[in-house]
Design a protein around this nucleic acid. Structure first.
Lengths: 221, 221
DNA sequence: TGACAATAGATAAAATATTATCGATAATAG
DNA sequence: CTATTATCGATAATATTTTATCTATTGTCA
């Protein structure tokens, strides 16, 4: 038995896996049995070789001229991402964004289940949003421990972010999905993943303005 | 004059620039005049050398033992990202997420100004959300052309995404900020930047579950 | 059946991105 | 005034990620 545990998986690979999962599920719904790297690549505008490389890390085998078994592939990706277990999560901050996230049922297909919301605004506390109850943030520690929750979605206003995040860590949360634009300063043994809208917009702005400038130049000529 | 236009800027660099801008603005508010790569790096948990490399592409110069002039740095980053011009944008789909985005004032510091919303739901059409009027999507083409809009924020339900995106392109929009989980199939001369929540969650899930497993192993021993 | 084409998977190469090294420079302390 | 130290910026080295090449396998079609 070779040491599979040593294989280091690159972040770009991890980020592509959900896309593969999406495509693979689509073909599974079509009652197909297998799918080839070529097809996945075509669906996503990638190279087949890259898809194969990525799938390699999952530890499953395909068959030449046929492809990968859909069921195996789905299971492998979900297991790799821990999306086969139900990951229960709290959401902290039920303002506009928080409520939008609570209303987004798509998370459940990623194995993420929001089971409670927290806020300090009395307006929301005690109410239900999409069937999920909202508690005062004072209850966070107690409920986190009692329900053995590990993941928290941070959707509070920018100003409160650092403090609330520290509170989450104290409560025992180890994975923070950070929807604020704040660079949280937390211990190393806490995982923070930031949804960086500014970064995304930067890429869009830069590319779009370049494109428009180029078009303007072409028109001049 | 060497050809500066040929310098190809990497995507990771572009994505880090907004973070630098955030830090730099913070120090600007503190009435500082200059900032060093060391300080920026420390604020963001990066390496100073990387910050310097990134700033290099902006074409500005720093001073040894002093750093970069804050004003220059801010101007350079904003100009590079085209965030110094007001980029007016439409938002298509004013459901939960769309409204959350319309309510998020942070975009304005990224030079993005949402000036109208579009939807098909009569419930919203004609109403104002955060002072921004909502129109029927049939008006998109006309208004896009009349107001010379280039950027559209796509926040419609998954099922409608491809069709609405095609409609946006027809209307003359060249940059689509895609908040749906759909891989849009569009001409090459359209810029699509997807906010990929699944990818982000994949990284968080993977890292968190690895951390928890490791802790479990340590407890056993 | 036998030639052919599509595909996985292994290995190698190329391209990208990050990190290190080092000389030059300028602020600061003594 | 000089020694020291922080910092930039140029170049080089390393690491990471993507892409290419090649071989073996397997289904398809003549």
């Amino acid at each position: 038995m070779k040491d599979k545990t040593v294989i280091k998986v690159s972040m770009p690979t991890i980020r592509r896996l959900p896309q593969y999962l999406q495509v693979v599920k689509k073909y599974h719904n079509k009652r197909d049995e297998t799918i080839s790297s070529t097809v996945i690549a075509a669906e996503l505008g990638l190279e087949a070789i890259q898809v194969r490389k990525d799938i390699e890390v999952l530890g499953i085998k395909g068959q030449p001229r046929v492809g990968y078994k859909l069921i195996e592939l789905i299971a492998a990706i979900e297991s790799f991402l821990n999306w086969d277990n139900d990951n229960e999560a709290f959401i902290i901050g039920v303002g506009h964004l928080g409520r939008a996230l609570m209303g987004y049922r798509g998370f459940e297909s990623y194995g993420l289940k929001i089971i409670a919301g927290f806020d300090i605004d009395p307006l929301w506390i005690g109410s239900q949003i999409n069937g999920v109850e909202v508690f005062h943030i004072d209850k966070l520690g107690e409920l986190t421990r009692r329900m053995n929750i590990h993941i928290g979605v941070l959707a509070v206003p920018q100003k409160a972010a650092q403090k609330v995040a520290e509170c989450m860590v104290e409560s025992g949360i180890v994975g923070i999905w950070n929807f604020t634009p704040v660079n949280l300063n937390l211990p190393d043994n806490v995982i923070v993943e930031r949804v960086d809208l500014a970064a995304s917009l930067a890429v869009l702005s830069r590319k779009t303005s370049k494109l428009l400038k180029q078009r303007a130049i072409e028109l001049e000529q």
